[in-house]
Design a binder for these strands. Sequence first.
DNA 1: TAATAGTTGACCAAAATAATCAGGATTAGT
DNA 2: ACTAATCCTGATTATTTTGGTCAACTATTA
Lengths: 162, 162
Amino acid sequence: MRLTTKGRFAVTAMIDLGMRHQRGPVTLAGISDRQRISLSYLEQLFGRLRRQGIVDSVRGPGGGYTLARPMTEITVADIIRAVDEPIDATQCGGLGNCHDDRECMTHDLWMSLNARIYDYLDSVHLAELVQQQLDKPEQCAGKKHEHRRVVGSADLKVAANG
Amino acid sequence: MRLTTKGRFAVTAMIDLGMRHQRGPVTLAGISDRQRISLSYLEQLFGRLRRQGIVDSVRGPGGGYTLARPMTEITVADIIRAVDEPIDATQCGGLGNCHDDRECMTHDLWMSLNARIYDYLDSVHLAELVQQQLDKPEQCAGKKHEHRRVVGSADLKVAANG
DNA sequence: TAATAGTTGACCAAAATAATCAGGATTAGT
DNA sequence: ACTAATCCTGATTATTTTGGTCAACTATTA
Ligand code: FES
Ligand code: FES
């Protein structure tokens, strides 16, 4: 399990896709423009998402990407797993080349920690995140925008200009 | 929030420390040998952990590192926060330099996702992980074992608070 | 007291690895 | 044929990881 900007970009892009997939295929150029993510990078990410069966692609003019499954059946963990290929296990790489009993602690430890985090990320569905975005009143609709503190713990300090 | 091998190594090392801090300071050389983590890397990691007040250091012969707080008051998020300096927010960096209405989705999205993950990792204490290791019988004592891609979703269940 | 050895502390630089981007090739609609 | 889009493969950049050196500190020993 790895959690970097790569996985986050993928989740962001998938939400963008989820918000407008009803109106036909969504182009990566559009996502790139809206979310300010490099088009080349998106292509790479969606290449993996497609091979993992999370999205479908339509080539040619009028094409783009569309969801391969309903949003309720796509979890955040699915997305991250697809683009951020999982670390196998530990330094043993699944071969168990540790010769003593103590080294295996690392192995089990990472595996269980991974499992716990995955277990959580598997409980968050794309539908929730999309709905969460749609529920927001036009927070920054053209004018000065004001961020609500949807999250309790982070010290969200935003300097809204205006 | 970032979750890479860096944070994982730190967690692994902290569990090793937690398992034997009762018998006095633990040397990084010992952790390096047991967990197969580069000594230089450990020094770097524990330098941060010390500055964050998570561990204390004792120099000279018989020295090493010891926990600065009881294990029940150290969370996984604490450790990861200490070694893996958190990403600020998004590309706007908390300043809201997005000029249009749509970009802010990224901001709130990442913030809330971060908060959810931190919220979870804050609920996992070092004491649990240490106990989890101590509870394990000799899992791979000289025996050959094969590893699989257990990172599915429900393959590896964790018995927390055992 | 003085010397010695074991240990952290801070720093730098190279090597390994991963993230990010650029350009061209391929497919399909008009 | 032309264009809009996905696909593919390599290059560039950033980050992680390791290795090394030297100084500071402290317990042990002579
Ligand atoms: S067997 Fe995988 S780390 Fe020991
Ligand atoms: S204000 Fe932070 S991303 Fe728009």
